[in-house]
Nucleic acid binder design. Structure first.
Lengths: 200, 200, 200, 200
DNA sequence: AATGAATGAGGGTTCATTCAT
DNA sequence: GATGAATGAACCCTCATTCAT
């Protein structure tokens, strides 16, 4: 990579990081492209060299941040000594929830709508460079001692429930603060996982 | 109610209905207040007599439409001959899902984020005029032959899962079209309900 | 005065007083007629029964407040034991300055532009009901043991200098706080008065 | 200075001059920003590139026009053969009054309130480019054969009296047309100047 | 590739004034 | 006389996008 390419990449990354900072602090609607370029220290026209518009950079950020989240959880799982698919999946969910509890702006930004969508979009966009979260999920299922039916459905259901319920519980403490809600959530997740297990 | 009050109400309702039409067809961001008043046939200033801004009318619409949804489902339940809390709750969820399948603009509008929030906000705002959805839910639980623990948590979990998963399934047919996903969803809901049942 | 007339007068006075409050606290430009009528507790249309527009009520207020100022100073002079035209005029100026030091919103409202104009407008409008400030000034001159030339010019010059310089000195403490500026101001006023004295 | 900078300056000046024309003919309250940009032949957004709002451009205009006024009077003084501080100061005042008599819109625009304030603000803002009016005043005092006490106070008093009285006399011919009032005014100014002279 | 001045459509909001009740 | 809902012109200001340099 030449010096020019490096400079190019630096500009793009500056825009990326600055946009994230502003989106999480001021909200997307209140963030103007001029805010982003000003804070990033580049010219207005430069923005359009790398991104189509505000929503383009937002979508790319959501995908990126979601991948980071799942990827870090997956890495932590590998370092831990957890057995059983249900325990592993709940470990991942718990890791993500804990991260988001400490980072509410991030939670607000990706918001529950988009978790699964972003995860899925990993496949559609060509951006999965080795840390393909969804495949990692699937391999967890395959490695388990039990067999599972309709794995796609199972993973979808788990992520939707955890994402949607976790969002409200963390941000609004409704119906309970997340620490008190976790036992209920994880019990539900276990039941859902079990219901997909093929009895042999 | 005098003639003037009647006229006032007509204006407010014209704005309310027109805003809903435009929000669902063009989206909120692309709907200008001038669009609303023009189509509603009132002057621009009139809008500000009844609503603070675009987001005010949007929030009131979400609450209103969500209430309608739950209210209609509750009415249908009363006319049907359904026994058992699990069957009743699933009947309600199913009724709402079927309504939204036939009315995707509405689904898009209220979106999964807001279902439960809107439902809860029913209590906070003074807008529950007899058709108080949440209390109706609670009375279903009370009337059941079984007893249930942590009812708030149960209802929250059910609504979040159904809302979040239903949203994706209906709109994007992911991971399955809603008709194929329903069995999985309702099985999960049943498990969650059962897990709150107090064994006597 | 019948009950109806009394009620009428009360409404007009409520508007008058409320307008003054709002003009001095929020400024004239930022005060809407709707603000005035709301705070005064009357209907919007009622405003137009008594005043032509915002500037009509403002002008009437300036005249009224300026008259009050001079009238109170004249009354105080009568109660005091002051001799010599120069001492008397400076007593009046000093009384007004002291009042305005304690009431900066009033100073800001009438502002230096308008002091003399308002004083003069007393004659033009038919509103001088016995407390005619300008005539009172003139009679002070006549009663003095000395004779004066070009009395109109003298009074004008005095009021302009005191008003204009006092305004800056009180509000901005420029070039000195008013208490330090007073000796200079009063020395200048004395010189101007003396210069109009006819040596006999 | 590059081509771009030149173009920038031209735009800013076009706005500046057009705003002055409109403010003096229509008044500030009745001049909309859209009027200014339209007449200046630039886009609306361009206005906001150079000025914060209507009051920003107004303030800058007042400072600018006041400086011009004092600067021209100072230049004329240098070309004239006048001796004695009192004569010099009165020459300057007279020059300004004569200019304003011929240019009543300008008088109305800067109005008596703002003369001294604008003059003083010359120091605060960094806009004094060689033609620093206030310092010029001071050097006149220093060069005089007599010594003066409290020079700040003296200059302030002179400018306030001349500004305030001149304003009314020119615009309303009250209490006398300016040509008839001048002798009185200048007599008063002389007395004030003398009163600051240190007898040696 | 990078810049940033210029654009101008577009949207939100205010508010003096009217007039039917 | 008094009301206050309704009006809609007027205005401010933002900001995505372009394009000459």
């Amino acid at each position: 990579m030449g010096k020019v390419d490096e400079k190019k990449k630096r500009k793009k990354e500056a825009l990326f990081n600055t946009a994230y900072d502003l989106f999480t602090t001021k909200g997307i609607n209140s963030t103007a492209i001029s805010d982003i370029v000003e804070k990033a220290g580049v010219a207005k026209g430069t923005f359009y060299l790398y991104f189509k518009d505000k929503y383009d950079i937002r979508n790319k950020l959501i995908v990126h941040k979601t991948q980071e989240l799942f990827s870090a959880a997956g890495d932590a799982l590998e370092r831990a000594d957890i057995h059983g698919l249900d325990n592993k999946l709940i470990f991942i969910i718990d890791h993500i929830i804990n991260t988001l509890v400490d980072n509410k702006p991030l939670l607000n930004f990706i918001s529950k709508n988009l978790v699964m969508g972003a995860l899925r979009s990993t496949f559609l966009t060509g951006e999965h460079s080795g840390n393909d979260s969804y495949e990692r999920f699937l391999s967890l299922v395959e490695q388990d001692e039990h067999e599972y039916k309709d794995v796609d459905v199972m993973l979808f259901t788990i992520v939707e429930l955890a994402g949607s319920a976790g969002y409200n519980s963390i941000l609004y403490e409704e119906p309970l603060p997340i620490e008190h809600y976790k036992p209920f959530l994880y019990r539900s997740l276990r039941l859902i996982i079990e219901s997909h297990r093929v009895e042999s």
